[in-house]
Amino acid sequence: MKKKRTNISDIAKAVQVTPSTVSRALNGGGKVSEKKKQEIISLAKKLGYRPNPIAKSLLENRTNTIGLIIPEFTHHFYSRMLAGIESITSNSGYQLLICTSNEDQSQEIKSIYTLLDARVDGVIATISKVNDTFGHLQEVMDNDTPLVLVDRFSEEIEAPYVISDDFQGAFSAVDHLCQIGCRKIVHIKGPDNLSTTFNRLMGYKEALRKHEIEWEEDLVLEGSNPDLEEQIKSCLETNLVDGAFAYSDYLAFEIYKVASQLKIHIPDQLAVIGYADEPISTYITPTLSTVNQQPFEMGAKAAQILLNQIENPEIPREFVSLPTELIIRKSIR
C-alpha cells in the first residue's frame, strides 16, 4: 500500500497550530515564536515532510524549471553545451527539462508545447535543420516565457541568441589552408536553411577572395547528398584538389575515407580541416585539424542570459557571438 505523503495539515494537527502557522515557520515567515518554529521544523524532518512543488509553483507563479531543446545527445558538441547550461542552472536552483528534436521540426514543435504545458520559467533551444516556420517559437515569447536560441538562429525570430562566430571560424580555417599553399580547396557545406551553414560558406568564400583565388561552384559539395562519397571522389579526381574544409568533423571524415580509397595522402597531398572539435578529430589518423566553437561557454552564456531575462524581463535582449579557435593537428602539412 502506498504511504501517505505528510502535508502541512498533518504537522499542524500534531503541534496544535493552524496550517498557516506551519507554512510561515517552514518558510521563514514572521509571527511564529522561535520555540514553536523549531518544534515545527523538527517534526517536519521527523515525518519526512517535503513541500509540494506543484502547489508551491502555483503560489509563486514559478516552477524553477528550464526547458531545453537540442537536436540530439550523441554529438560531443551538444553534450558539452548541455554541461555549460547545467553549470549555470543548477547553481541557481533550476532544474532542466530536456527534449530532443532529432532535427525534426514537427518534434521540435511538440517539445515546445510540452514545455509550455509544464509551465517552465524559460526555454533554451537549438532550432532543427528544417526550419521553415517559427510560429511555435514566437508563441513561447507571446506567452511571456523567455526564450534564448543557442548555436543556430534565424532572422525570422527576434529572440536573444548565443552562437559561435562561424564566419570567422571558417575564414581562419580556409585562410590557413591558403597560407600553406592550397589553391584548390573543396568545401563540404552543411544543411540548407541553417545560419551556421551560410556563415561558414561565406567565411570560406571571403578567405578565397583575400588570397585572390576564384571561387568555383564545383568545389562546394552538399553534405546532405546521399551520393556524397561519389561526389567527393569525382571532385578529388578531376579538380586536383589540395585542400578541404568541411562543415563538421564528421563530414571531414568522409573526405578521409575517399582519400584513402584513392591513395591520396593526408596531409602531403591533401590538407583537411573540419569543424566543432569532436572527439573523432583526435581518434582518426592523421589527427584532424578543426575549429573549436566553445560549446561549454556557449551553453553557459545562453543559460545566464535566460536567467537574467527571467529575473528582469525588461532588460535588453542580448545577441552574442563567441570567438572560435583554429586547432592545427596532423592533417595540415
Results as ranks from 00 to 15, higher is better:
6 T>A: 13
8 I>K: 01
21 T>R: 02
34 E>N: 14
35 K>R: 08
39 E>W: 04
40 I>T: 04
40 I>H: 03
42 S>K: 12
47 L>I: 04
48 G>L: 05
49 Y>F: 14
51 P>E: 11
52 N>R: 09
52 N>I: 15
55 A>C: 07
65 T>P: 00
68 L>I: 13
70 I>F: 08
72 E>V: 02
76 H>W: 08
80 R>L: 03
82 L>K: 09
82 L>N: 06
83 A>L: 06
87 S>G: 06
88 I>D: 05
90 S>A: 14
97 L>I: 10
102 N>G: 12
103 E>H: 10
110 K>Q: 14
113 Y>P: 09
114 T>I: 07
115 L>G: 04
120 V>N: 08
129 K>S: 14
131 N>T: 13
135 G>S: 14
135 G>D: 12
158 E>K: 11
159 A>I: 08
162 V>H: 00
165 D>I: 11
171 F>G: 07
172 S>I: 08
178 C>S: 12
179 Q>Y: 02
181 G>E: 07
182 C>D: 08
182 C>A: 11
191 P>L: 02
201 L>G: 01
207 A>W: 03
217 E>L: 03
218 D>K: 12
238 T>S: 15
240 L>A: 13
245 F>G: 06
251 L>F: 10
254 E>Y: 05
254 E>S: 15
265 H>G: 04
277 D>S: 15
281 S>H: 02
282 T>D: 12
288 L>S: 00
288 L>E: 02
289 S>M: 10
293 Q>F: 00
294 Q>L: 14
299 G>V: 00
301 K>N: 06
302 A>T: 00
307 L>V: 14
316 P>W: 02
316 P>C: 01
316 P>T: 01
319 F>K: 15
322 L>C: 04
325 E>W: 05
329 R>Q: 12
331 S>D: 03
